[in-house]
Structure formats: structure tokens, C-alpha cells
Design a protein around this nucleic acid. Sequence first.
DNA 1: TTCTCGCATTGACACAGATCAAAGGGGCGC
DNA 2: GCGCCCCTTTGATCTGTGTCAATGCGAGAA
Lengths: 252, 252
Amino acid sequence: MHANVKQNVVPLITPGLKVACSQCNLRELCLPFGLDDVDMARLDNLIGGGRKLKRGQHLYRAGDPFESIFAVRSGFFKTDVLTEDGRDQVTGFQMAGEILGMDGISTELHTCNAVALEDSEVCLIPFTELELLSSEIHSLQHHLHKVMSREIVRDHGVMMLLGTMRAEERLAAFLLNLSQRFSARGYSHTEFHLRMTREEIGSYLGLKLETVSRAFSRFQDEGLISVQQKHVRIIDLPRIKSLLAPPDGRIA
Amino acid sequence: MHANVKQNVVPLITPGLKVACSQCNLRELCLPFGLDDVDMARLDNLIGGGRKLKRGQHLYRAGDPFESIFAVRSGFFKTDVLTEDGRDQVTGFQMAGEILGMDGISTELHTCNAVALEDSEVCLIPFTELELLSSEIHSLQHHLHKVMSREIVRDHGVMMLLGTMRAEERLAAFLLNLSQRFSARGYSHTEFHLRMTREEIGSYLGLKLETVSRAFSRFQDEGLISVQQKHVRIIDLPRIKSLLAPPDGRIA
DNA sequence: TTCTCGCATTGACACAGATCAAAGGGGCGC
DNA sequence: GCGCCCCTTTGATCTGTGTCAATGCGAGAA
């Protein structure tokens, strides 16, 4: 919180950190997806470098001028929006291979905050240059559109969650989502470390932290998970999935 | 390319309906924004035609193959997602000049339903061809990205609404949003006809229809609006705006 | 190591909004 | 133009989650 940052606005770029897309084990999840070697080299060429962030550090803040999007190389982020009247809504959690910052394209200003929840590294992708290159490489252009579209679809899922689900359903959906994403990155899908606090989970799920905590405890009591602070182990995945069916079992 | 299968899911295109972008009074709101005459003619050229929909008709359904995005020429739409377990969430209401269908880019399938809430007309914009053209016209490419980004930002706003606001705040935000959008289209910002039911408003706002109805009544009792069925007149806009500040008046 | 502060857990109670129920009223199809 | 049915309104009650409060645990700092 009281980070003794020398410059807290200007991104500190670490050119030495740069890793070629072609050497990156995330390339199948990230922007280079589907590019051949030649085109990947061209993408490599425009990536401005990397940036390391300590836990708690902001990658960008609402109001910052938009210049780049970011690919998470390692670590874990949250994005949140806050209104002038003090409301705070976590809009997402991002892990390796996911893209951050697309909210800034529309107004040339970032509209949310992105904060590292653990020590993290990102790749900077200057957006103007990305547009230029994507007009030359059709598969890159199309993949960029898919990434943006996926973000829209993801947001619709969150709206569904916030609009229609009860507290335990929300938490179940959240855990299943994390499980699936960790799994896609080669980590265990039954055991993982939460990088965010109960309050941040609550903000994301539209619940108060106490409600989140109670739901965790209830899940543990029922033998669905074992949870100790931020460590979670999924015990009964099928039954967690079944929580997402409505209580009366009605079908569409 | 034209493996034309005739079944009832195929959009019925009405070529005669086509209106040139350059002649369209929505061009400043819509995709052609910022294009010069020559480029606008090229965009005109790819727009496949128009389609008319009757009230209640689907423009597309979840699962339909994605081929085009749509620009609303006239009328009013809702989009909604429904899960196999019967949940239904309205994700947005779209009016003239707004773009529909970008959810389908990521999987090549539409992920939500789009329904006309009154007799409406749309322009079909074949997406593959739009990508091709946008790689040649930089301002078109950039504007498309802005439109997609704006959708992401809008969704964040809805997440904020669903995650942090109380019923009357949600309705106030909804009315202000409609007011602003009608106003941007040259209609009165204080008097308009709601095209959707209380249930659809409720689904969008994460509330039950009775709660929406009660909130309307309360607003009327307090002299903020006058409402009779679907007709709404904004009486005290400043006080409606002030509802969006939190009750305790705390500041960030 | 020990201290400390932020984070998490748990309980008691309050309340906003959901649910259940009933009665018009108006728009749309015929 | 008429009639039906869906939409809307309003009331009474229930309940899930918020709020307030107190205690406890553990990670990180010195």
C-alpha cells in the first residue's frame, strides 16, 4: 500500500526481461496463438519489453493514457473499477497468458486499475504497432478480435453470475473457473493457492467478505472442499458442479 | 462461399432495404465514424444488405454460426444469455447505431440471443470481409477496436451496477443511461417509451419484476418521474442523478 | 525468533428484496 | 372494434445476505 515507488505512473520497462514469443511456453494461450515462425518473429519484434511488478503494485490506473496492452507472463492480477462515490468492483482476475488493458482502447485512457496480486511479469504490446502489424498478418488480426470477443463473452458470464446466482452458486462458479484455468496452465485443478483476499473475491462476486467466508466454511463442512486461509483443495468436483443447477432442478 | 442452405435459421436478407452508410443519419454513431467519402463507399460495398424484424423475432440465437455483426438501423433489441439450467440474464438493450453480435467472434458461434423488442431494421456486416477491409483502412480498423473496447467498458459498468448497487440505484442508473442514449439520437431525454417489460428490466438489473415495479412507483411518489405503463417522463433529473451517490455520502 | 497487523472466521441481528398472492388495465391479435 | 391475455401494480410475509461486533490465526518484518 505505502509502496516506496520512485515513479508510480511511468511504467518501468525492463528490456532485459524480454522473452521471445517463440521461446515462451504461453504462446499457445496468448496473442501469438496460431502464428507461424516468421509472423511470430515479427510480433516479437514489436513487443516493447517486459515489466516486473511487486505484489501490490499497479500495472496501470484508471485515467492513465492508453498505449499498450499487456500479456501476463507470470503472476496474478486483479482489475477493478471504482466510482467517484467510493464504490469498488473487481472486474476480473488475470493469470499467465491472459491479456490486460483492452478497456483502454475505446477512450485512449484506461478505465480501470490493474494491480499485481503477487510478484508478476508482463509483456508490453504497444497497441498502435499491434494494429499496424495485425493489418498485415490476418491471423494475428483475427486472433486479436477473438481475444477481445472472449473478454465480452466472459463479462456476460459474470453478469449472469451477478444477476441470477445465489451466494454459494457464485462461489462454486468462481472455484470451477479457477480450477479450469489453472488446469489449462498445467497446474493442479484440485489444489491451488488463492492470490486474492476474501474481500476481493466478494467484490468480484457481488458479496460481502463475511458471506464469502461463510460459504467457504459451508463448503468445507459439506465435504466439497478443504480450505485453510488461501489454500484450497477441491474434494468433490461433481457435487460442486451440481450446485450450479438450480435448487428445484427445473430444466429449460 | 455461397453454399446457400435454405432453412429457417438463415437470416432473411432484404437487399432492397440496403441504405448507403453515406446516406445514413446514424453514420456518426455507427461503424463508419470517421471515414472519408472514399472509404465509406468501400464499407458500403461490403455491407450485405438489411434485414427487417418484427417485434419478438430473433436476430440470432445462441449457437447460431457467426458470420456477421449487425448495426441497428432502427428499432430496439435486447440480448440475453440463458444457461441450460434455465437461468436467463438480459445482457443489454441496443438501439439505433449500436452494434450487435460481437460475442460470436471468439467461438465462431453466437453465445447469446438477440431479439427485436419492436419492429426493427439492421444492416448486416459480414465479419470476414470487414476484417479484410479494416486491414486496408486503418481508421476503420481502429474504430472497430474502439467499438469492441467500448462494449467491454460498458459491461464493466453493468458489473459495477450488479455488484454494488441497491435496487433504486440500479433503476436510476438505468433511466439515466436510456435518457442519455435517446438524447444522443436526437430524441427527448426526459420523455420516452420503454420497449421492454418490467421483467426484462429486472433481468438486466438483477432484480425481480415486482421490485422494478415498486421502484418505479416509489420514484413517481417522490416526484422524480412520472410513469404510466411503458411511458416514462423524467421530472427531476438532478435528484435522480444524486441517487447514485451512496446514502452515507462518503467520499473515496 | 517474536511482534504485529492484516486477513479470516464466527455469531447475532436487521433489512432489502424475493416470494406468494390477488386484482385490474391496456395493448394486440383476431 | 372486441375480447383475451399478458403486463403491471400492490400487499403480506419470508429469507438470504448485509451489518455490526468480537476473536483468532498467520504471514511477513525486524
